[in-house]
Design a protein around this nucleic acid. Structure first.
Ligand SMILES: [Mn+2]
Ligand SMILES: [Mn+2]
Ligand SMILES: [Zn+2]
Ligand SMILES: [Zn+2]
Lengths: 149, 149
DNA sequence: CATACTAACGCAACTCAGTTGCAATAGTCA
DNA sequence: TGACTATTGCAACTGAGTTGCGTTAGTATG
């Protein structure tokens, strides 16, 4: 049980099912935010040869599991502006993303001046209580800027 | 023809239809980004008594018109992270939004330190060419924080 | 004003991510 | 080894947005 998500879930009384282990495993190994479809497909192929052998999971299960993990604050919803929900582990430092509009390649990035000060000013000026912000950068990666001729 | 959008469209050779005039009018008067549904409903009620009398427009027309206006750079797509496309006039100064998660009330806001410098640094460090960014703040407005007791 | 050309429109059917109700299955614990 | 019920699978559904196609109505021209 080296998986952080699974360990936390167990501590909170969740059952250790095969689907759950497969989904948590894929999320933990992902290098970028994943959509339900990114988990559904790989579930039976990527896990082959792993300790979790072949595994077929229904899409409803994947959606429900993702929503549960988000509600448990174990993953964060990331919005790339394309009406598809994506998630990444919640244990990393707060950061933003650089998304290639050509190939959807994603890179984590940090912003120089944190937005905390701006948020406090906005709270003073607007009487809103700010809970969070979403900041993502869109552009073209090197591969998409200079397609192999 | 005091409407800026309509004037530009005419200059570019578009026809002046009733649906087009109604949609452009609603977008121009809106105080916050609008979704297709925000335009579909009001079209026949809000315009009553206006120079454009009663008007019923099909949803396909609204979606197509919005997409055309966006392609013509007359409106900008704004993403509130809820899988619904919203649009606002493109003629205003670049800004961001403060969105109430309780009632979807929206307020335009500006950020202290522009993100241009950050974008240039990211371009150097990542070899991406950045085209744009999306930054929105989410929280609770005064009305939603202190519900009328 | 009459006519023709075709942009724009309305309608119905479709797509696609995500959701829901419910019966069947399988972890967990005694 | 059960019993209890969380979790799953399935099918049907939702809702925003899209598409194909035949019809309507701006616009230009005479
Ligand atoms: Mn990330
Ligand atoms: Mn705005
Ligand atoms: Zn790319
Ligand atoms: Zn509110």
């Amino acid at each position: 049980m080296q998986n952080k998500i699974l360990q936390t879930l167990k501590e909170r009384g969740y059952r250790m099912t095969k689907a759950r282990q497969g989904i948590a495993g894929i999320l933990s190994e992902a290098g970028a935010p994943l959509a339900a479809a990114d988990i559904l497909g790989p579930l039976d192929s990527r896990l082959r040869g792993d300790d979790i052998k072949k595994l077929r999971v229904n899409k409803t299960t994947v959606y429900r599991e993702l929503e549960m993990l988000r509600a448990e604050n174990l993953i964060l919803e990331v919005d790339f502006g394309d009406a598809i929900k994506r998630y990444e582990l919640a244990d990393s430092k707060h950061h933003h993303h650089l998304i290639c509009v050509g190939c959807t390649r994603v890179q984590d990035v940090e912003v120089d001046a944190p937005l905390a000060a701006t948020e406090r000013r906005l709270e003073r000026q607007t009487s809103f209580k700010i809970e969070r912000h979403a900041l993502e950068f869109f552009g073209l990666c090197a591969q998409c800027r200079f397609p192999r001729r």
